[in-house]
Design a protein around this nucleic acid. Structure first.
Lengths: 131, 131
DNA sequence: TTGCTAATGATAATGCATTATCATTAAAGG
DNA sequence: CCTTTAATGATAATGCATTATCATTAGCAA
């Protein structure tokens, strides 16, 4: 359960998550880490994700109706933006806040989740090129 | 696929969704509709949900990491609140908006999802009684 | 370098929501 | 009241992400 040895696979997975700077799917992690350590198994990805989570180094990012993504844990409150075209997820560091007033008397708001959807910079640029 | 006959099961499922005034899980719909039509099958619930969706009478409500819920379709923009204790989901009719400015240059925000989590009125009242 | 054993790779098994199957039931038009 | 056939109930099958299994490999302490 807890990671005791620093394997090449573990380091590769950690590096991939650190460098991506955005939440990644287990499959994406496998693809990217396989470049560093060929023949890596998906099971190894899941095992290390579990270990990294147990060590509080990563958190899972859940978007409605989608498989979990994983990102390096930060202590800053943030949300996410997903591009509808490339499906990549990005961090959003702003938050409107003040949701307590949204609910009627008797309800308490303890937490919230905000997800923005649209077109990312890269996909937007690609469209311009096509014309 | 499309519903052609108004069966007791169909009417029960529709009534349950209409009266609940909040999104329900397939299992919840089964439980509630079974009171009206005993021995209803879960397959019937799924079949009718598909039909109702095809007829644009209901929409699915997806919360991160949870099974889909279903609610009667309205034309008013709204979000959802989930009670952490009873896990029920409620409608929220306010929206901060103005998310376009949250993203850096080049990104376009086309839609958004806001989910509040906390304690509902009923669960809050129950706690007070216990003391 | 060796030995111990955690970690890996490959893949089978699991869990679980949803869908398909099929014999039976019941809308609904005539 | 019949007849037709859509819809149902019961349950098996499916799809798919995640987990377990197990023989093999490779950290790492001595």
């Amino acid at each position: 359960m807890t990671i005791e040895r620093k394997t090449r696979q573990y380091e590769a997975i950690r590096a991939v998550l650190t460098e991506a700077k955005r939440p990644l799917l287990a499959q994406e992690i496998l693809s990217l880490a396989s470049v560093i350590v060929p023949k890596m198994s998906l099971a190894t990805v899941y095992r290390n994700l579990k270990g990294l989570q147990a060590n509080n180094l990563i958190t899972s990012v859940l978007l409605p109706g989608q498989n979990p993504r994983y990102e390096i844990k930060t202590h800053t409150h943030h949300h996410h933006f997903q591009c509808r075209y490339c499906e990549q997820v990005f961090e959003v560091n702003l938050c409107p806040g003040g949701f307590e007033s949204f609910m009627p008397e008797g309800f308490t708001v303890e937490d919230h989740e905000l997800i923005l959807y649209g077109e990312c910079k890269e996909c937007s640029a690609q469209k311009s090129e096509e014309s």
